[in-house]
């Protein structure tokens, strides 16, 4: 059974101030089967976060439909855990309370919440920081709290918006390994937004390459590389070359269009 289904999604942002509309997503259809790890790959501003927000239920598509587990999405819910681009932790709660926030909402007792949080704090390697406040954490540590918080929901679907973008190379590699291990253990479906080709190839079972403004799916690539992924291997590099070529073509096409028509294609929308 398909876990996530996007059918002919379009998204137009109404820009009241500048009196014009922005076509952010244009006719995207994607199906993510259960236990898949889909990476959305695209340049900055191409609509990756917007797409993820529509699956999460924070934004409504202007056209088309989103279903998760067969049910249409009509708002955010704990069946879809999200790891945000910024960690978005409650600054007034210590790390463990942030991780266990969902249980607080469910009315669990403090001792039970504390015990439940510990498992996920250990999982993301934050032992010893349980009682720290978000202001006392580094960017990477905050991001890990955000991941632990999403994992604790034990959701069928985890949505991740460039969660490792702010991390150093070493931490990033550790976290990527950790994430793959968690995904294999928890058997959940992950949609992972990134603008790094390497990251997409290290993590995903599928990579969707998006075009920029408006966002469309340029190509959906299935990866059947063995894990752990060998980033110097022949197959890996073939995929990488192919994707980089797509991105280069895309860039050239954009520049040609920009020359022919000073207003970028998607921007015309319903200009007033």
């Amino acid at each position: 059974m398909a876990s996530i289904e996007l059918k002919n999604i379009t998204k137009i942002f109404r820009d009241a101030k500048r009196k014009r509309d922005l076509l952010a997503i244009d006719d995207v259809s994607l199906t993510v089967e259960r236990n898949q790890f889909l990476c959305l790959l695209g340049s900055s501003g191409c609509g990756k976060s917007t797409l993820l927000n529509m699956i999460a239920g924070f934004e409504k598509p202007t056209g088309g439909s989103v279903t998760v587990g067969g049910k249409p999405v009509d708002g955010p819910g704990a069946d879809r855990g999200m790891v945000f681009q910024q960690a978005n932790l409650m600054p007034w709660l210590p790390v463990w309370e942030n991780v266990a926030f969902h249980l607080r909402l469910k009315g669990w007792r403090k001792a039970d919440r504390r015990a439940a949080a510990q498992e996920y704090i250990d999982m993301v390697g934050l032992q010893g920081f349980e009682n720290h406040y978000p202001a006392e954490l580094s960017g990477g540590m905050s991001q890990r709290v955000g991941i632990a918080r999403a994992l604790l929901l034990n959701p069928q679907v985890i949505l991740m918006d460039e969660p490792f973008a702010a991390l150093d190379a070493q931490t990033k590699m550790d976290m990527q390994e950790e994430l793959v291990a968690i995904w294999q253990k928890q058997r959940c479906t992950i949609v992972f937004v990134t603008h790094s080709v390497d990251e997409a190839l290290v993590l995903g079972t599928q990579v969707a390459v998006l075009t920029s403004r408006p966002g469309r799916v340029r190509e959906l690539i299935d990866l059947d590389l063995p894990r752990p992924r060998d980033i110097t291997g022949q197959q890996f590099n073939d995929h990488k070359r192919h994707i980089l070529n797509l991105i280069r073509e895309e860039g050239m096409q954009q520049r040609r269009e920009a020359k022919a028509d000073p207003v970028p294609a998607g921007r015309q929308g319903a200009a007033a």
Binding site: F58, P76, M82, F84, N88, L89, L153
Partner: peptide
């Protein structure tokens, strides 16, 4: 958003 994601 984060809280409503957790079902608030």
């Amino acid at each position: 958003r984060a809280a409503s994601m957790m079902g608030a």
